[in-house]
Design a protein around this nucleic acid. Structure first.
Lengths: 239, 239
DNA sequence: CGACTTGTTGAGCATCGTCAAAGTCAGTGG
DNA sequence: CCACTGACTTTGACGATGCTCAACAAGTCG
């Protein structure tokens, strides 16, 4: 199925924004729009890298697993994000849809060649990769050195910031009330904890009036400063 | 001090290998060779990104810390590796020399501009960044989900592979006997453990004849298969 | 030979994971 | 409208893993 970049909802945010109209027509010919159902995998850990894509709609998780089923979420992808491993022959992790999603798929060979011919596109890709590397490295500190309460507090702050970008009712770049786009199990897989530990930390934060939990999915930040203190070094300890 | 790329020991491995002689002369004008003593920092977490560099000699660690002193090693840099944050205004982590080192430094502004004018160089930089992203993501699984013995076993295998690249006496891409380039504290900071736990896991592996420890710095792998099993899922449990 | 740095070992304890049970909620069909 | 179902979450009891603190061993350098 042929794609139409002109009408694409992510044309201004995805790496394609580096291209002019002529180039868009050219890359258009290389792309296919594909729908993925929630829970379905787009790429499997260990497979050859045959495709890359842009996320158009929905959300994906990047995961890596151990043989006995332990799973770590290694990254999250939202509309306009880039998926896959260009310029390499192996996918190092699994990509799974968290919701019904649409992606704009390219064969990796086609894409690699097209990128090499369009330096502005390659530059966008480099910028994204550098930013992602910074983000991933920050989470290494969280996974390697933070306690459970520090992890949960950090996570809530990061979510409130990330969701603020795509919203309006913000206070200082943070949302005070927001809906988590994940269940507890996925939060646990992001933070390297168990579902029970995540749950206990959330109720702990609630008991201390740092947050409120209107229901399982929604979070309201009551004391952002305190939450920040807890995220950084666990000061302002809980009872 | 002016540099001379022609004589540079890493000219074939660093990103500069993308450049032809004319271009080398041009980038040469932008660079300074700087010596760094062991323990000295080249870049501080949180500082503005004013410089980038190539490692010419020695080794560096990338770290991120919490206020109370907990530290996580987020990456390691060896000769020919690239240091710093191009196309961004903030350094997200500290870079410290592990040994007396030499780097080839550029002002970030100069470097950014030069890269944009030389797509082959930008391509090399992208490839490096993508490879580093894969490596960092693999370590997220280790930090988030692996037990202490799995972490130590994974680490020993990775070191034996990495050191095999720069050596000769290899068996199937792995070194059987090698010298760790770090002390126990740094191993702990890489693995997100304490020094005591690392020490205990090493003696445990020794008692089970999986490895031998001629002295504190040297490691000999006696049973690579068993070590691999332990690294992956802790099967072949120890006593 | 001390003083110092680095690594090892041990005892006790806190944190977080495991296992099990009960509670909440949305959806379905009578 | 309500009872039933199944998925998800919370809570509790318990235990293991890994951390803290402390002592000791082994080098290393003056």
């Amino acid at each position: 199925m042929m794609n139409n970049c002109e009408q694409c909802v992510v044309k201004n945010k995805a790496i394609c924004s580096a291209l002019d109209p002529d180039e868009l027509i050219a890359i258009n010919r290389l792309s296919r729009k594909v729908s993925i159902k929630a829970g379905q995998a787009l790429i499997w850990e260990g497979d050859d890298s045959l495709i890359v894509a842009n996320v158009v709609e929905g959300a994906f998780k990047l995961t890596s697993s151990l043989e006995d089923g332990r799973e770590q979420i290694i990254g999250l992808l939202y509309p306009s994000d880039f998926v896959g491993r260009p310029f390499g022959d192996r996918n190092e992790y699994t990509v799974t849809a968290l919701a019904d999603s649409k992606v704009c798929v390219f064969s990796r060979a086609d894409f690699d060649q097209f990128v090499r011919e369009h330096p502005d596109l390659e530059h966008k890709l480099l910028q994204r990769t550098l930013t992602e590397l910074d983000r991933v490295r920050r989470s290494m500190l969280l996974l390697g050195r933070k306690t459970a309460s520090e992890r949960v507090a950090s996570f809530l702050l990061e979510m409130s910031e990330r969701l603020a970008d795509s919203s309006c009712s913000v206070v200082g770049g943070q949302l005070r009330l927001f809906a988590l786009p994940f269940g507890r199990q996925q939060v646990a897989d992001i933070l390297g904890l168990t579902i029970e530990t995540v749950s206990r930390q959330m109720t702990q934060l609630k008991k201390n009036d740092v947050i409120a939990l209107p229901d399982h999915r929604n979070v309201q930040i009551l004391d952002a400063d305190r939450l920040q203190d807890i995220a950084d070094s666990g000061v302002g300890a809980l009872h």
